[in-house]
Amino acid sequence: MVPSNVVDRHPVAAYFVLTLALSWSVWIPVLSSVDGPMARIAAIPGAFGPLAAAAVVTHLRGESVRAWLASTLDWRRPARWYVAALAIPIGVGLALAVVSVVMVGFEDGTLVPALLTFAINVVFATLLGGGQEEFGWRGFALPHLQTRYSALTASVVVGAVWALWHAPLFAFGVYQMAPAGYAAFVVVASVVFTWLYNGSRGCVPAAILLHGTVNASVSVPVQVVGGPSALPVPFTVLLVGAFGLLALGLTVRYGPGTLSAAAAQTPSWTGDGPERRSTVGAPGVSES
């Protein structure tokens, strides 16, 4: 028997609440006492909230955490999906760098530092600065939501909570961009992540690589022009525009149902067949 009927019937809601609780309970007291450059380092433990919450909810539903983890770590997919995970954010970053330079000009002496920072950040962001979140967002929430909703709707829901999850980082000044612009960027980027996840038939490692590369690449355009203050418009406007066009193109090309040429991916680790995932109730609903 599943120990909690509420968690069993509403795994995604339980997951979202627990993710916010775990991360915020770390971030709020820590960021209240740490500021400056150390704040980003001090925030790292809280960034594992999505992963921890997914494991806890899986366990509370009476399912195998080992099977869920094996599913999320299954990297055996065609190489093109890993290439896409690198090429999309790098391509967007280069395009935005060109747009930024056209608008305000190139800042001398910034290109090499920007590229070095990008190379370092790809490794850091993939392992500790964003990539680890994908065990939860795409590795748990998205497949559960897709048992009941279209891929587009599931993407927007995940994106909205994903954006909200960052709220303490804005409240304590760790992130310096406009919260509304950042939230819009995360929501449209979530559509691109769903395309990669569904198209690769649930490859979380590719999503991890995409997340890390996105986080690393978005700093390059503003670095080569001397910082975000040099731009005549907020950089988040450019980000939302670029990823929004990409998300729109994917939606038109593949349709909102799956956002990819493959089927919408649903939980593969439950071990009790599609019947349980399609019964009445919230995604991945109850055992009786």
Rank of each mutant, 00 (worst) to 15 (best):
G46H: 05
L142K: 03
G181I: 08
S32R: 13
P267Q: 11
T58C: 12
F16I: 10
L115E: 08
Y82C: 10
G130M: 00
A47Y: 04
L231D: 04
M38I: 06
S286F: 06
P283H: 11
S32P: 08
T72V: 15
E63D: 14
V218H: 02
H211A: 08
G136F: 02
W24P: 04
G199Q: 04
A151N: 02
P168F: 00
S25I: 11
L18Q: 04
F172L: 07
P179V: 10
V224S: 03
V158A: 10
L231R: 06
I88T: 12
L18R: 02
L20K: 02
V233D: 05
A151F: 02
V174M: 07
A85E: 07
V214H: 11
G105K: 05
H166W: 10
A119W: 04
G181P: 10
P274L: 15
N121S: 15
L94M: 13
M103P: 01
S71M: 08
F170W: 09
V218M: 07
A262L: 05
E63H: 10
F185V: 03
T72C: 14
Q265M: 14
V240A: 13
G36Y: 12
L31P: 02
P50F: 12
S100H: 00
W195S: 01
L86R: 05
V285A: 15
T194N: 06
G130T: 00
L210T: 01
R61W: 02
A141H: 00
V285L: 11
R277G: 13
I41A: 14
L209F: 11
G49R: 02
S100N: 00
A42R: 03
V233A: 13
R61I: 02
V2Q: 12
G129M: 06
T266Q: 15
D272E: 14
D108S: 14
G130P: 01
Q223H: 06
R66I: 11
A183C: 09
V225T: 03
I88G: 00
V12N: 04
V92N: 00
I88S: 01
A151K: 01
D8T: 10
M103Q: 13
A264G: 14
T236A: 13
P3Y: 09
G136A: 10
